[in-house]
Simulated scan of single mutants.
Amino acid sequence: MNPVPLVDETLVRRLITGQFPQWAELDVERFPSGGTVNAVYRLGDAMAVRLPLVAGGAGDVATERHWLPRLAPLLPAAIPEVLGTGEPAEGYPWAWSVHRWLAGETPKEGALSEPSLLAKDLAGFVAAMRSVPLPDAPRAYRGGPLATLDAETRAAIEQLRAIPEEDVDCDAATAVWEDALRTPDWDGPPVWLHADLMPGNLLVDGSGRLTSVIDFGCMGVGDPACDLFPAWNLLPSAARDVFREALAVDAPTWTRGRARTLSQALIALPYHRKTNPTMARNARHVIRAVLGEG
């Protein structure tokens, strides 16, 4: 997937002026983000413009436009509200969207003010997603069997083995992964998932409580283990236990969730280590958290 050329404030202004002239006089400002799929720009004080940076993210625009209004009344935290969908223009090749701005700060692993309360908030959101009754759901991006990640995970471990400065215990990572592969797959009905609960897709208020969850491009139905990522990518050990208890997660699902989170981190670290400090930092945090559990 190749990035589109020159997504900047000038392009955003041209797109807004051409397709949403009622907002043409509003300020446009790039919003710093560690994400890799979309660029986000503030539009005035109350809106955000979200433009896919890769072809794989372009389909998310239509998916979110269809599902977000249906999901919003069923969830305990705010989620993006689509105010408008733009069309390809001005040399930009894909659909894009305008959302209502959601206030809050992105939580940072290792720096949570109320980790146990945040763990309960996250568990409440995940439980609500699992209970969504909407039919005809798409398949979640990460919703299938653990074994579908095997080749990519093992390849990433070997990449890291060749990068000694990262100091990853690749034998321990392999042992965790192989143990998880022996765990039974989910045999219940598929459940609704956000499927990308990274810290960058969460917003908290000044007291550290969850206010919003964003970026639903991976959403759909699948294995409930796929929404356990915050246990290792964000929460410290004691809050991790709170999260698990609040969701009443059984041992096989917990094992699969742990392995999925580790897999994502192992794959992300060699890919992002020199280009995306935020993603690389969180990947290192996950690897330490998982392998530190023994």
Rank of each mutant, 00 (worst) to 15 (best):
R256C: 10
K108D: 11
T106L: 04
V286G: 09
A238H: 09
E245N: 11
Q22A: 15
Y141D: 13
R14I: 02
W177K: 11
P145H: 11
A283V: 10
F243D: 02
G206I: 02
A48F: 05
L51F: 02
G208D: 12
E109M: 06
W23E: 14
H99D: 12
I267E: 04
A46Q: 15
R50F: 02
R258Q: 14
D121S: 10
V28K: 00
A268D: 14
K108M: 10
R244P: 03
A195V: 06
T183K: 02
T211K: 10
F20T: 12
K108N: 09
D227N: 05
G294D: 06
E178R: 14
P138W: 04
D205L: 05
S97I: 07
V286T: 06
A265P: 06
A24R: 10
P88Y: 06
L102T: 01
N201T: 08
L83I: 06
A162L: 03
P230C: 08
E152R: 14
L197D: 03
L134R: 00
D205W: 06
E81T: 15
P236K: 08
P189Y: 07
R100H: 07
A137D: 12
L26A: 13
P107F: 07
L181E: 11
I267A: 03
L160V: 10
E245I: 10
E81K: 13
R139V: 11
S33M: 08
M279Y: 03
A24H: 06
S237I: 08
A248Q: 10
P73M: 07
S131I: 01
P133D: 12
A62W: 10
P93V: 00
A140I: 01
L53N: 10
R288A: 14
F125Y: 13
N276W: 09
E90P: 11
T36F: 11
A283M: 06
E109Y: 09
